[in-house]
Simulated assay, not measured.
Amino acid sequence: MELIDLTRTLDPADRELLPEGLKALASVVAPSVAYSHPAGAGRDEFAAALQCGVHDLPDGEGWGSEMLSEFNSHLGTHVDAPLHYGSTSEGKPSRTITDIALDELFCETVVLDLRGRCEANQPISVDALKAALAENGASVPQGGAVLLRTGQESFTLADPGFFQYPGMSREGTLFLAEQGAKVLGTDAAGWDLSFAVMAQKFRDTGDNSVLWDGHRAGREREVFIVQQLSNLAALPPSGFHVAFFPIKLARASAAPARVVAFV
């Protein structure tokens, strides 16, 4: 069995790659990290903790340590709990990230290749999803996961195109849920169209149904949405399981996750 990591590395250096105008998104890209090296700040911290002098330390070194800040619960590759979409889901109080059982997040998975079937800043159509499913040849696993490969792998955080991606609509989200999917994942920065695109649509039409309709569909059908996946090109179309295991963050609407495929 091969283990394939589908998780984006949380690297504070990536914050500097963001184009001007998108710097405000840094807290959902990577945390700020203060590094303490065993031969540097970690040495002083260790000596202070043990109430001794630096000269007393074995080999003259302390510990390696990191202090993280600006750590958003929707940081990097993360799992959205139903609470993220609203206070209720399927008419019941929305579950938090720690309400979700691990066996709900370890499931059979299919990959839908949407490259050439979707466009940047445009919703992914139900027809495109149906065509990708037909090409895959496998059915959606009941209670399983569907991962969308949209082609965003060709962009880095330094490219404006990273934040101009195809997004899901209410209709598309409900279609996948109705097929039996419980976990919905994407290689894009977000599940819906970008905030800038949704805001412009609202200004143009005055129709508030365009605002975050992909996520809000999770109020009608409970699903767990996973964003900023990577390395989907390494996966077969079907016949494998994925673990979507988030940090156990009490009462949270989401948490960063280590997402690993078992192929």
Rank of each mutant, 00 (worst) to 15 (best):
E66N: 05
H78W: 02
S69M: 09
L57K: 03
M67Y: 05
G76L: 09
S69D: 11
S73G: 02
G76N: 12
E90T: 06
G60T: 11
R95Y: 01
P58M: 12
H55N: 13
G60S: 08
D59G: 08
G76A: 10
L68R: 14
T77K: 05
V79E: 03
N72D: 15
K92A: 14
R95A: 06
Y85N: 15
S89K: 05
L75T: 09
G60H: 10
P93R: 01
P82L: 08
H74M: 10
S87W: 07
S65T: 03
D56N: 12
G60I: 13
K92Y: 05
H84G: 01
L68A: 11
E90R: 11
F71H: 13
S87F: 05
R95Q: 14
D80V: 07
Y85H: 12
T88D: 12
T88M: 08
L75S: 07
R95P: 04
G91D: 06
G64H: 00
V79W: 00
H84I: 01
D56R: 03
L57S: 03
P82Q: 15
E61H: 08
E70I: 00
V79S: 07
R95I: 03
S94P: 04
H74A: 15
F71I: 01
P58V: 00
E66P: 00
H74F: 04
S87H: 09
V79N: 00
G62K: 13
